[in-house]
């Protein structure tokens, strides 16, 4: 019978079992790397660096995981924090305009030929809407879980999902169901 996340966490904490931690990484690497790829607008190298930092941070602070939320939700929160910290650092180093992180270009004025590309449409959303859409619609988190990950009120998550959806629907209208 496969071990649950809680069993594996307990093994790491009690015996410092590296095999158990490797199992946790294998179970969750796809979801965490996928989320970070979307957040970094498909910068694969950066996403994998952030994913490594996420898991290393999770290992260091594993004793603070109290099992109140799902392990995956806890990991998503660490990954999102890693992404935000990195974005802030890079902004300081190369002077990235805050608008690049928070409010991207208007989807209405982009090349219509790219509209069919959902990845591109996602990348056009402001960060707060993109994060909410990725967590709730793509990764299947409840609004409540997404609120914990993003550390924002539940109502704000619902609003961001709704607005993000509306924008995606507009951008992808021609490719929707007839």
């Amino acid at each position: 019978m496969p071990l649950t996340d809680a069993d594996l966490v307990a093994r790491v904490l009690v015996h410092d079992d590296h095999h158990a931690f490797a199992e946790l990484v294998r179970n969750h690497q796809s979801a965490i790397r996928g989320l970070l790829r979307q957040l970094t607008r498909n910068d694969l190298a950066l996403a994998d660096d952030l994913a490594q930092e996420t898991f290393l941070r999770a290992y260091r602070h594993l004793s603070s995981f109290r099992g109140e939320a799902k392990f995956s939700t806890w990991l998503y929160r660490i990954a999102y924090n890693c992404f935000r910290e990195d974005a802030r650092k890079r902004k300081e180093l190369v002077g990235i305009d805050e608008t690049m992180l928070e409010a991207q270009e208007d989807p209405q004025v982009t090349d219509p030929a790219l509209k069919h590309d959902l990845m591109h449409a996602l990348s056009l959303l402001p960060l707060h809407e993109r994060s909410a859409i990725l967590l709730c619609c793509q990764n299947g988190l409840s609004h409540d879980e997404a609120a914990r990950v993003l550390d924002i009120p539940l109502g704000t998550v619902k609003t961001n999902v709704l607005r993000g959806r509306e924008k995606l629907k507009k951008t992808l209208a021609a490719w929707g169901p007839a």
């Binding site: 490797a22 294998r26 796809s30 996928g34 979307q38 994913a51 490594q52 290393l56 990845m119």
Partner: peptide, 16 residues
Amino acid sequence: EEAAYIDDAGFTAQLM
């Protein structure tokens, strides 16, 4: 569909 499984491809080994 966009959230298709990402193959480990040595990620875990490198991390460990």
